[in-house]
Nucleic acid binder design. Sequence first.
RNA 1: GGGCCCGUAGUCUAGGAUGGAUUAGGACGCUGGCCUGCGGAGCCGGAGAUCCUGGGUUCAAAUCCCAGCGGGCCCGCCA
Length: 649
Amino acid sequence: MISAAPLTELKKECEILLREAIKKISPETMLETLVLEKPPVWDFGQIASSACFELAKKLGEKPLALAERVTEAVDKSKFSLVQNVVAAGGGYINFHVNFTNFSALTIDSVRRMDTAYGLVKTDKSLEVIVEHTSVNPLHPIHIGQARNPMLGDSIARLLAGRGHSVSRHYYVDDVGRQTAVIAYGYEKLGKPRPIEKPDHFIGKIYTITSCIVEINRLKKELELAKLVSAEEEIAKINRELDDWTAIAFELKEKYPELFEKLLQKIGEDENPESSINALNRAYEAGDEKARLLIREVSELCLEGFKETLSRIGVSYDSWDWESDLVWSGLVIEVLQKLKQTRYISAVGGVLEFEAGKVVEDLGLREKFGLRKDYEVPSLTLVRADGTTLYTTRDIAYTLWKFRKANRCINVIGMEQSLAQTQLKIALYALGYSEQAENLTHFAYNLVTLPGYKMSSRRGRYITLDEVMNEAVERAYQEVSRRSPQLEEEEKRKVAEFVGIGAVRYALVEVDPLKPVEFNWDRVLNFEKNSAPYIQYTHARACSILRKASRKPEKVSYDLLKAKLENEIVFALAEFPEVFVEAAEFLKPNLIADYANNLADKFNTFYNAFPVLKAEPQELSDARLALVDAVRTVLRNALNLIGVFAPEKM
RNA sequence: GGGCCCGUAGUCUAGGAUGGAUUAGGACGCUGGCCUGCGGAGCCGGAGAUCCUGGGUUCAAAUCCCAGCGGGCCCGCCA
């Protein structure tokens, strides 16, 4: 017999036993839901029910006395996966597992189902779009943004494993002032071919250009302010100017040639600010020259992203260009529809969406968990010059996505919570309440650097590439030290998946809502509670199986008597339930945590018991089967968080 | 001013939706052991915690509610 979820099988048996026993004692009592949990201590049993606490209230009896009567009423002839039932504590009913049967069920299930084990299928398969990463094509992906692809990709893997039809989308944000800035600088340089990784090259041009333009703009503003404004205003501009001047010095030091050239070329422009704005307008209008230029720059940067992302094992099914939404008329269409609602106000060409009013009219306060007096701020949809804003286009994009999917998950930092809420409110205002309900903003907290804030505009960031390179380099040193016998090429290969695995694990392991302060120790961890530790454990298990050079044929599961062996079996049986929870609640960190725990248990086992040399062979074979099952589950778990499970390292 | 998120040993972190048998689980660091077994990226042990504070709900609160404190983020014709 095999089962896709052995633990669920066990719980079912416990539930039937319990319900029948309760019925015997008190035929009238109906318990709708029966929660079965895991006792805090292994020796109490493996499954527990607190039903008697509730029941005791109804029957006016002491919980423990009731629990004792219930356990006596249990029909022991129906035991299959259960060994024993006892009343304990203040009134708990504890089930002890029959491990001869449960080990057989669990280990056989894992080994027979292999790559499918744990990935319990949903009965409501949906078309799901997971949009993640979507870093603007202006500069390399930095470590502050790197949490996004790790989480997004893991979520996509979880949902696909759950049986949903998942599509991974990257939203290319090529519309807006920032893209115009980089394109402007790129053109001023004469559209140079990058002599390095293209996104790094683009990043430099972007930072320098935006710095020069900013200083230029502030200087003009200062002139003006001196004529008309108060001293306070002038001081403020001066402070900003000082700030940018400092950055200019930094950049000039770091990239003297590029800086000089841009300074000179931009200096020839009477009014860079207005050139940039003109470029932005032209692009939105679909002007041929603007299109060619901005697409070229963006593609160049994306080329770099793709290299980075494929190195960490992240790929996409669709690259959605924001500009396409504008040019196809979809954005205008949505704007028209919004204008027909009662929630738009127009002041001198500027269009505002009155989200607060929608909340009141449609009674959405509770749905969004808003406090009683809090008024959701209005959202500007269209600038005075007629160009649209980011969230406006995102509304159109969301509706576009819902043509292809019935659930959309946006992996976006929590600093955009308000915008995402406004977007959702807009969907309600347009009558797309179903879509609004099926739209999830998967928010995660920021990664900060100790001491200062990362700023891509200011060019202050640590890139994901740097982090990966450093991790792989460190991994290489570790490999050389620990496995000197390996060939050079082999060492490089191992260093790559160990280093990358470490980075992925480190970023997916922590609860996404918690803020993370970046430090190298976090991602360069090769010891316990890290991907390398789990990878090592997997390789160790593989090594035993390799050395055995036989399949476990004469298996006697009743010989797996040690508590540790039972604990491992139980942990294997839990995997499907952990997976379901992780997939339903979008918590990839549960998988990371689970894999680490299983690895811990396995290493303890490894140290305590021989496998190959165990006697008799029935025991050896049973342990071999256990090792094989652990190997399988570790691999399946690692796959879900995008970490490679090596057979050797 | 208003809103959102976070606050657990020196450091990092689990648990929190569904309050219970908890004595708050783990890692790093510190510290004492284990190289004759199948990979030491390992194993076993020790010390180390006002679960931010104060109220409330409850027979029972790290968990739920309220107020406050600390850190971060947002409230833009930026994205």
